[in-house]
Amino acid sequence: MSTPPRPRMTGIGRVLVIVYAIMALAATGRSFVQIVQRFDEAPLAYTLSAVSAVVYIVATLALVFAGRRGWYLVAWVAIVFELVGVLVVGTLSLAVPELFAHDSVWSWFGRGYVFVPLVLPFLGLWWLVTHRPAASVPVTAAAEARS
């Protein structure tokens, strides 16, 4: 008899999804206000805020549904994109600060969000590695393994 799959959204997994959802809301709100009120002042920074909002929304949904077909891969892509974005934008904001006259979610490695954008993708990747979806084993193969 096979063991039932362990639930994905318990404990730290649930906290991780909640933090991603909060970041999605915060980045969406920030980018909306920035784009509506002052887009002409810093189009690059404000566009990057909107991109980060989309990434956080996709990552949140992908983590929630990561046990379903295809969503696990979407979670990987979104979180790796997030990590690369934070590292590239954070590095550029230090090296070429005139590109980011106004802060974006990922500028200065997420300083405006207490560096949560820098830490979050590492936690997300750790979660994905430690909570891979169970591979489906055909019934006949499982029966043969027991005999």
Rank of each mutant, 00 (worst) to 15 (best):
residue 135 A to M: 09
residue 137 V to Q: 02
residue 91 T to V: 13
residue 141 A to Q: 01
residue 87 L to P: 04
residue 112 G to E: 05
residue 117 P to Y: 06
residue 125 L to V: 15
residue 132 R to Y: 07
residue 115 F to R: 05
residue 115 F to S: 01
residue 111 R to A: 10
residue 103 D to W: 09
residue 114 V to A: 01
residue 121 P to I: 03
residue 109 F to C: 02
residue 137 V to F: 03
residue 102 H to E: 12
residue 127 W to E: 15
residue 99 L to Y: 09
residue 97 P to G: 03
residue 128 L to V: 07
residue 121 P to R: 06
residue 142 A to V: 02
residue 96 V to Y: 14
residue 100 F to A: 06
residue 126 W to Q: 12
residue 111 R to D: 04
residue 141 A to P: 04
residue 118 L to M: 08
residue 142 A to E: 07
residue 113 Y to Q: 03
residue 125 L to E: 08
residue 135 A to P: 01
residue 138 P to C: 03
residue 120 L to P: 02
residue 105 V to W: 10
residue 122 F to T: 08
residue 110 G to Q: 07
residue 124 G to D: 07
residue 101 A to L: 14
residue 105 V to F: 15
residue 114 V to Y: 00
residue 114 V to F: 04
residue 115 F to N: 03
residue 120 L to H: 08
residue 105 V to D: 05
residue 103 D to N: 10
residue 91 T to Y: 12
residue 109 F to V: 04
residue 115 F to Y: 11
residue 120 L to I: 00
residue 141 A to R: 00
residue 100 F to D: 01
residue 131 H to W: 11
residue 99 L to N: 04
residue 101 A to G: 15
residue 104 S to E: 06
residue 126 W to S: 13
residue 100 F to T: 05
residue 131 H to F: 03
residue 96 V to L: 14
residue 114 V to D: 00
residue 132 R to V: 10
residue 118 L to Y: 00
residue 87 L to G: 14
residue 112 G to M: 02
residue 123 L to P: 02
residue 136 S to I: 14
